[in-house]
Write a protein that binds this DNA or RNA. Structure first.
Lengths: 226, 226
DNA sequence: AATATGGTTGCCATCTAGTGACAATGCTAG
DNA sequence: CTAGCATTGTCACTAGATGGCAACCATATT
């Protein structure tokens, strides 16, 4: 795919990445970091600036502009998160046989299910997209309010529903919790070993998803698109 | 600045915006929306895809890619928010004479001050960047946990400190609360009229900041950079 | 003060890389 | 089946992207 790439756009994007990764750079810093001539870098940065992707301070330092914030916010919308998490949620269901949920903060002190992939057992937890659950007393809620450390998981028995146990882990974008990934399992099917196993699997999955949404300078994105 | 723009980059960025604004578009849709030939649009979208800015589903539909999420997350980092809010915070201090604070969620159930612009009165509230305050019982906390509607404000007297009244409003990016903007004022200087006046001013400022971070398709960004 | 170094910005000759018309192939609707 | 549209690849053409260079500025050093 590299040979069908558009060099000029490649270069502009590299400059954008540099500005987002290391804010407060001079033109000369940007040119060096991307191995471009200062003239070329200036012209491309000017284009990015005109489009709102970067901004230049009075001192001549470049930092991200509003447009990249806007597009980033749009990209982190629910639809994107659903798409982004789908394969991993399906893998979770494959590995555990249990129903997996993706939830985000709702209005006031609620969370809302935005994506559900049901488990494979004939006795399984069932719910619906759009359902709201309270933040308080639920595993997803705990994860969403930041009570669960990145890479960890929380277990809540008899939270909203009496016969189920929920395990949840936070999905972060940078340092910000953007979603909670959870498994909701009929309690009779669980024991301590399984809870630990599923919890660790869930936390690893959420951690991997979080890594993909984190600020990773210099990541070869083509290699990560698989 | 238009005549020094790089046409190829302009075009790629327009395509990126179209994909983020209206996800699930075909190549032909993208080409029409940007008035490019299908060949050109395909090549530019291929470049954006290789760089992770867009992704293409099995059905051939384009949606935002991980890289734009990552850069958006980085752009919404604290430093950017500080830069972005600075002028409006200064205007607030100008208009009210009171100290104004920008805070974001901290670890667990705290908020953290990331930017402070002190008021102009000799008797003024003083605090420090990096200070954490509890989410519970503070105006900023109320705003950060989503208890304050967009465009509204909350008033808390004797929250953390006995002699001050805090007014706060949420700053959103899309539907997500990313920060709280607040005024912290010695209580003796306030009456109901002033509280309402400052509250409305603060809410309007936070609303304006939120608008700037919202998903706004087709905004002429050069016009908004002033 | 003079010199050296590095940064920013503009200019313009050069030529490479970006372009789009066209063709081939595939899919869908009538 | 035909027509229309979408996707993808090819290639001749030239426009636009490039970078060397100069002018100017700021700062540090001698």
């Amino acid at each position: 795919m590299g040979e069908t790439s558009t060099r000029t756009v490649d270069r502009a994007i590299d400059l954008l990445a540099v500005v987002c990764d290391t804010r407060g750079m001079t033109l000369a810093d940007c040119a060096r970091a991307t191995d471009l001539s200062a003239s070329t870098a200036l012209r491309l940065l000017r284009t990015l600036e005109a489009k709102g992707f970067v901004q230049k301070t009075e001192e001549g330092l470049y930092s991200p502009g509003r447009r990249i914030m806007q597009l980033g916010a749009a990209a982190l919308s629910e639809e994107s998160l659903i798409d982004y998490c789908k394969a991993d949620m399906e893998a979770l269901v494959s590995d555990t046989g249990e129903s997996t949920y993706l939830s985000v903060p709702g209005f006031r002190e609620t969370a809302i299910y935005i994506s559900i992939i049901e488990g494979t057992h004939s006795v399984r937890h069932t719910s619906w997209v759009g359902r709201t659950i309270p933040l308080a007393g639920t595993a997803a809620g705990e994860a969403l309010v930041g009570r669960v450390a990145p890479g960890a998981y929380v277990v809540v028995e008899k939270g909203v529903e009496a016969d189920v146990t929920a395990i949840a882990a936070p999905v972060l974008s940078g340092r910000r919790v953007v979603a909670a990934l959870s498994l909701v399992i009929p309690s009779y099917r669980l024991n301590e070993v399984l809870v630990a196993r599923y919890g660790e699997l869930l936390a690893a999955t959420a951690g991997s998803l979080s890594s993909g949404l984190s600020h990773e300078p210099g990541v070869p994105t083509a290699a990560l698109s698989s």
